[in-house]
Design a protein around this nucleic acid. Structure first.
Length: 874
RNA sequence: GGGCGAGUAGCUCAGGGGCAGAGCAUCCGGCUUACAUCCGGAAGGCCAGAGGUUCGAAUCCUCUCUCGCCCA
């Protein structure tokens, strides 16, 4: 066995990955094992892996590997999302570089081009997920535009339509003039911008004028009324009168509406039902006409009179100039206000009256709220529940049509008179039309596609083959866990719950783990404009997937945001190297271990009993943390066990036997080492799949398919833990004393250990280990008195001295004893004070009082010994 | 305006009613035959502030401050 002294992930990971690829992670819904399932949040085909993916896919993989090892039929369903706007934009940009637009190509050719693009780049992210080590069942890889999933989308649409839960109508929607499509409320991001408040005079019929304040003067071209608050005494006299719209000269009734905020501007609001949500409602209630003044591309349409054809912002300037010329502009004040921007392209969106398809959400939201109230779905951390409720309780209808080409085309056909036929396909639509008209007519399919999130909402069951009745659905639905970021809680999570309940009659998942947002070292969001984006693939290149995963797990316990830093990644890499060298040490020192030897029945040393006892606790802790999805705590437990206990202590103590003469003892040590290593790699495997699989091969163990360790309570050994704790303290004290006395670290010293049976017990077997770890020859002399000039120390209740007359720095030795004494006295004082309080003795639990008394007794004994040592000094 | 999260060692953070922890950085000392991506030792804290609950608060409650985020 010839293993390099440094762990090299670049060599190991591709090799292990190839092995996994070959075998796959294919699940069997009929295995009879208890199922455990997760569906991946499908990454966009346009996307490359980002830190958010790295985080939540690492966590999903940790869970799935753990469950798989723990005997579940653990299935992780992978897939990708067609990402309507995002993908279409990317391909449009590509075309633009060739000087073409999608309109030049036409719908069919453009779609062919997007598919071409998808075939070329769409699977890149899948390869990246594989590199990260994700053990998805890749045989079940799905894409939201696959035939099966498209069938699911059409089925859902048709059913919702026939149930009256999807409707078409003319409403005010958010419009992105760059994407030239409608957007849902969620796709609009509000941002504070510095703008102006324009005060415009509207002449009154019969003389005079009224001043109206607006941030978007160009929309006045669509004004159909003015409004004041009915309780605003200043403007009572205006109600019922008419104003004249500047430039266009339209007659505007002045109405009363309680939505008008008397504090804003002059307290008089212009009503533009086609371009403002509040105005839209007022207009609807009062039956005011709505005049759309915008084209799809953001230019003013024919309703804008002299401004027709101008871009909305140019029109604003032109209109303001005109008002000024007409003497109708009172003033312009700078004004900060929130403006909606397109989530995709950052273009300011316009509220715009338009005919679109909507999902009626209230009836769907109600059961989605109820299942969470009833605990059928649980959010982790729990506080997200409230956010979920708040949104669903105030939900508005969901605009699902998009004026794009890339996506699921809306399965609706129109007759010559505009009659709508919603059907699974054209043939069915034709049948419906024939029944309606009594003859064959020309049908035209709706040009629009569905919001990407519509297909995403069906994802947990569409990936399993719905609407077919599949064994996957039967076994794996509902899934057990969803791991995702809070940014898509509304976009995706809430909608999956609504759709899952509606179509399957059951929740899509039982638990939702919300992960934090990864931010940079300074706590700033990663963004292209900031230039602080870190590509996880670069990190895999430089540090390996395992190191990246461990770092992700490390920071996964945070609340809303988690800072990523290179320092943490280096720390993870160091840990991997530590694991590697631990394994290397164990493998080489046990290479001669004959097969067939068993640990059972052998007489174990203190350190064996101790480490095996600790292993029991570690297994229990790791399991408990994993069950509660406290990944960072599980990882931390393992980190400290491996590094701080196994490597720092057990291996070092073990060298006594491994390098010693006693063959039987050596065999025992080897057997314990092998046992330990096999358990450690399996405990670590969900977090660090590559290195553990690699080490496993040297143990003849396929770690990824082996059983996750179970705690063997019979190995719990409090006595051994106590002995080792005493031993460790003794070693630490001697080391500290040596260091503080400035003694040559390589020099072997003599140490005389005094103290009774306990010291004898600790040193009886561990004497040689003490020699090794503290570089001392230890002599047990219960009754010995320290000679003049010996340095003395105390570890627990074991006293020792180093008889080195004439060589020592007395002050340093004494200082150390005094420092220890000060600590003991401080703690004892606090303890005695507490014990002196009657209230404490009466009200604190018995065991707490008993524990305090015991500790106080120990401290008193310690103090006595320390004082005696200090006295004996002179 | 409403809501959420964070504030603990110089830095990044664990912990979450009963002895304040880790890693990094710092200082001192070591290439000791698994590992210098290492080993040993040391130093470093009014757990943001003020009240409250409790025998006991870093931890629970209230308010305040600072930072970050979400929704309107």
């Amino acid at each position: 066995m010839d293993l390099p002294s440094r762990y090299n992930p670049n060599e190991v990971e591709p090799r292990i990955l190839a092995r996994w690829e070959k075998r796959g992670w294919v699940c069997d819904p009929k295995s009879g094992k208890k199922p455990f399932s997760i569906v991946i949040p499908p990454p966009n085909i346009t996307g490359r892996l980002h830190m958010g993916h790295a985080l939540n896919n690492t966590l999903q993989d940790v869970v799935i590997r753990f469950k798989r090892m723990d005997g579940y039929e653990a299935c992780w369903f992978p897939g990708t999302d067609h990402a309507g706007i995002a993908t279409q934009t990317v391909v449009e940009m590509e075309l633009l570089r060739e000087g073409k637009t999608r309109k030049d190509l036409g719908r069919e050719a453009f779609l062919a081009r997007v598919w071409q693009w998808k075939e070329k780049y769409g699977n890149e992210i899948v390869e990246q997920l594989k590199a990260l080590g994700c053990s998805c069942d890749w045989s079940r890889l799905r894409f939201t535009l696959d035939p099966g999933l498209s069938q699911a989308v059409r089925t859902a649409f048709v059913r919702l339509y026939r149930e009256g839960l999807i409707y078409r109508g003319e409403y005010l929607i958010n419009w992105c003039p760059r994407c030239e499509t409608a957007l849902s409320d969620l796709e609009v991001e509000h941002e504070e911008v510095q703008g102006n408040l324009y005060f415009v005079r509207y002449p009154l019929e019969g003389g005079g004028y009224v001043t109206v304040a607006t941030t978007r003067p160009e929309t006045m071209l669509g004004d159909t009324a003015l409004a004041v608050n009915p309780r605003d005494e200043r403007h009572q006299h205006l109600i019922g009168r008419f104003a004249i719209l500047p430039v266009l000269g339209r007659r505007l009734p002045i109405v009363a509406a309680q939505e008008v905020d008397p504090e804003f501007g002059t307290g008089v609001l212009k009503i533009t039902p086609a371009h403002d949500p509040v105005d839209f409602h007022i207009g609807q209630r009062l039956g005011l006409p709505a005049i759309n003044v915008l084209n799809g591309d953001g230019t003013i349409n024919e309703n804008g009179g002299p401004f027709a054809g101008l871009d909305r912002f140019k029109a604003r300037e032109a209109l303001v100039e005109r008002l000024q010329a007409d003497g109708l502009l009172e003033k312009i004040l700078p004004y900060r206000h929130a403006v909606g921007h397109c989530q995709r392209c950052r273009t300011p969106v316009e509220p715009r009256l338009s005919t679109q398809w909507f999902v009626r959400t209230t009836p769907l939201a109600e059961p989605a709220i109820r299942v969470v109230q009833e605990g059928k779905i649980q959010f982790i951390p729990e506080r997200w529940t409230k956010v979920y409720f708040d949104w669903l309780e105030n939900i508005r209808d969901w605009c699902i049509s998009r004026q794009l080409w890339w996506g699921h085309r809306i399965p609706a056909w129109y007759g010559p008179d505009g009659e709508i036929f919603v059907a699974m396909d054209e043939e069915e639509a034709r049948t419906l039309a024939r029944a309606h008209y009594g003859k064959d007519v020309e049908l035209r399919q709706d040009e629009d596609v569905l919001d990407t999130w519509f297909s995403s909402a069906l994802w947990p069951f569409s990936v399993m083959g719905w609407p077919e009745k599949t064994s996957d659905l039967e076994t794996f639905y509902p899934t057990d866990l969803l791991i995702t970021g809070f940014d898509i809680l509304f976009f995706w999570v809430a909608r999956m719950v609504m759709m899952g309940l509606h179509f399957l009659g059951d929740v899509p998942f039982r638990q939702v783990l919300i992960t934090p947002l990864i931010v940079d070292e300074k706590g700033q969001k990663m963004s292209k404009t900031r230039g602080n984006v870190i590509d996880p693939m670069d990190l895999i290149q430089s540090h390996g997937a395992d190191a990246l995963r461990f770092t992700m797990v490390h920071i996964s316990g945070k609340g809303r945001s988690a800072r990523f830093s290179r320092a943490l990644l280096d720390e993870s890499r160091d840990f991997l190297n530590k694991i590697w060298n631990m394994a290397r040490f164990i493998l080489t020192t046990t290479a001669d271990l004959p097969a067939g030897l068993a640990l059972e029945g052998r007489s174990l040393a203190w350190e064996d009993r101790w480490i095996l006892s600790r292993l029991v606790s570690v297994i229990e802790e790791v399991r408990a943390h994993l069950e509660r999805y406290l990944f960072h705590l599980a990882a931390e437990t393992l980190y400290h066990f491996v590094w701080g206990e196994v490597c720092d202590w057990y291996l070092e103590i073990g060298k006594v036997r491994l390098y010693g003469e006693d063959q039987e003892a050596r065999r025992t040590a080897q057997l314990v080492l092998r046992t330990l290593l096999a358990d450690i790699v399996r405990l670590l495997h969900p977090f660090l799949p590559y290195i553990t699989e690699e080490i496993g091969t040297y143990l003849g163990l396929e770690v990824s398919r082996s059983a996750f360790p179970r705690a063997d309570a019979g190995r719990r050994d409090p006595e051994a833990e106590k002995v080792l704790a005493a031993f460790q303290e003794l070693v630490r004290e001697i080391r500290a004393l040596r260091s503080e006395l400035g003694l040559d670290p390589s020099r072997e010293l003599e140490v005389v250990v005094t103290g009774g049976a306990w010291a004898e017990r600790v040193l009886g077997d561990l004497g040689p280990a003490l020699a090794r770890l503290a570089r001392v020859r230890a002599k047990l002399a219960p009754e010995a008195l320290p000679p003049q000039g010996a340095a003395q120390g105390l570890a627990g209740d074991i006293a020792f001295f180093i008889p080195l007359a004439g060589e020592l720095d007395w002050a340093a030795a004494e200082a150390r004893l005094r420092k220890t004494l000060a600590k003991v006295e401080a703690e004892l004082r606090a303890l005695e004070e507490r014990l002196g309080e009657e209230a404490f003795r009466e009200r604190a639990p018995e065991e707490v009082v008993a524990e305090a008394e015991k500790r106080a007794r120990e401290l008193r004994a310690r103090r006595t010994r320390l004082l005696r040592l200090l006295e004996g000094k002179r």
